[in-house]
């Protein structure tokens, strides 16, 4: 093994060590949560804490899932996140396309303005939204919550999709137009399929933004449309903290997004690298 190969190997080793440290750093809280969900109630609060359960039990899952309102909140979370993602993409894709293709001064102002909305604390818009939805007869509905969540995910969607559209050469669209496509047809038949990885990434981010959102869910829902993050928080009460049930429900709640991410993993990787190299 020559000097160059040795240097390469040691660089690789260092890289792997750093990578492993990062994975442990990110992964440990989830692993600990997973292990806690299988502990007996008294073991979840052991002092000092133990990593592995001395006796594995699914009692926490039974307790969490049999709690009134949990199943309904799960359905509400799915409905709200799906709807919010759909609204976000429906509005975000054309907006991002227009901004990148027409390059007007107003467009530049619009995209900066979209970013600025991300800097407004959600609680500031929460109270007015509460009144607006009540006046519209939409209080405690998933559609109202989805619209509220869209205020979070839409700016993100516009910015993400703008960067993906930037990477698509305009010649592709021109070719489609020569073949008889309208501008919208070219967007639908050529640009969006080419950026499908980016759309998947945007969809996942929009879905996650809604799936994990807590404040709007707390303010805008009551009985009918309450989502799971609020239900999970309810395990901590003024009288105590039910760690076992809380972690069990948090694990169950994580499963759909993990599956979704795995399902769309190929598109996500493609999307994240799209536009990274300019040809």
């Amino acid at each position: 093994m020559n000097g160059l190969e040795v240097r390469k190997l040691s660089s690789k080793t260092i890289l792997w060590i750093i990578l492993a440290a990062v994975v442990v750093l990110y992964g440990f809280p989830f692993v600990y949560m997973l292990l806690t969900s299988f502990k007996a109630p008294i073991e979840t609060i052991a002092v000092p804490p133990r990593l592995l359960p001395s006796e594995w039990t699914v009692a926490n899952y039974v307790s969490a899932l049999s709690r009134s309102g949990v199943t309904a909140s799960f359905v509400n979370s799915i409905v709200t996140a799906t709807l919010s993602t759909a609204i976000s993409l429906t509005l975000g894709l054309p907006a991002a396309y227009a901004v990148t293709r027409f390059r007007t001064r107003l467009g530049r102002f619009f995209i900066v303005a979209a970013l600025v909305t991300r800097m407004v604390p959600p609680i500031v818009v929460g109270v007015p939204m509460l009144s607006i939805f009540r006046n519209l007869g939409l209080s405690d509905t998933s559609i109202a919550l989805a619209v509220a969540h869209t205020t979070i995910s839409l700016p993100l969607s516009i910015w993400l999709m703008s960067s993906f559209f930037e990477a698509v050469p305009s010649e592709l669209e021109e070719a489609a137009k020569i073949d008889g496509c309208s501008r919208l047809g070219a967007l639908w038949r050529v640009v969006i399929p080419v950026t499908s990885g980016g759309v998947a990434v945007t969809a996942i981010f929009a879905f996650l933004a809604s799936w994990n959102e807590f404040l709007f869910a707390l303010l805008l829902t009551a009985v009918r449309a309450q989502t799971t993050p609020v239900v999970i928080a309810n395990f901590q009460t003024q009288f105590g903290l039910d760690w076992g049930s809380m972690t069990a429900l948090a694990v169950v709640y994580s499963v759909p997004v993990i599956l979704l991410t795995l399902l769309l993993q190929r598109h996500i990787v493609a999307g994240l690298t799209l536009g990274a190299v300019k040809g």
Binding site: A72, V79, T82, A146, A225
Partner: peptide, 29 residues
């Protein structure tokens, strides 16, 4: 499907509309 279910939510009915249910806001514990 989400759109179809979004108008109400599935957690049950809230109060005032029927006049036969009152809603009590309470800390979880």
């Amino acid at each position: 499907a989400a759109l179809a279910m979004s108008g109400c939510g599935v957690g049950g009915s809230t109060s005032s509309a029927t006049g036969k249910t009152i809603t009590v806001l309470v800390e979880a514990g």
